[in-house]
Amino acid sequence: MSHNSDQPDLRRRDFIGKTVLAAGAASIAPGVMLTMANAGSDEGVSSKVRWGMLIDTNKCADGCSACVAACNQENGIDLIERPAGQSDAMWDAQRPQWVRKVKLKDNLTGEITNLPMMCQHCEHPPCVDVCPTGASFKRADGLVLVDRHTCIGCRYCMMACPYKARSFIHQDVASQRTGTPRGKGCVESCTLCVQRLDAGDQTTACQDACNREGHQAILFGDLKNPDSEIARALKAYHSRQIRADLELNTGVRYTNI
């Protein structure tokens, strides 16, 4: 540096100025572009829609588990491999299950009921309230999902869920399907086949499977659209929420239990 003169080195200042300007532009540019980068068409899903399900337990057949198999395939749950050395009992207790078949018997009347249990997609989901990082969230269209990017695997949501709807991934997941990323150390549950909905499809894998079997026990659709099949069915028949006492306003309803 030239210290022999009191005069500042103007060229040097000029050079520094330009460099700083260039560096500033270079570092800001990505940010500016980032705001423009999201070419995503619109605001995303709308709260004018609320996805929900109506399950007619009378039509749900004893011994049929087509919905479970379809769910496992659609979401790549069957791609998870049983770790070496895990006992049968622990595999049953630790493997993920997004939907499960439950068979009930009334204590008084002896009436038998079959039904599928899954995430009930509450309007006021306890799992979302308790999640420390906000990874558990409710989408505008009523789906209760887990953002695996911020899930730390604390499992507080599993403690809070009244339906035992969530599963923790206890082992490495070797392969996934493109539409349903999933991996070790995070919590997951039924997404109402969000990848299908976002692609414009309006059915879930379990519903399709149930229809294929000819049972038609599962009805899926938009609860807020008064003309949708599910909204009309809900209006016409008596249905109930499981654990209605908690006033969670579930998106999944049942008839005949």
């Binding site: 990505p30 572009m33 980068a37 999201n38 068409s41 995303g44 969230f137 989408r139």
Partner: peptide, 25 residues
């Protein structure tokens, strides 16, 4: 090369949280 991680991170939130699937990245 320089920004793909930021782009992906930005658009992943749009996809996961809002269901926007036609993001550029």
């Amino acid at each position: 090369r320089r920004n793909h991680m930021d782009y992906l991170k930005h658009d992943r939130d749009a996809t996961v949280r809002k269901g926007i699937r036609d993001t550029r990245f």
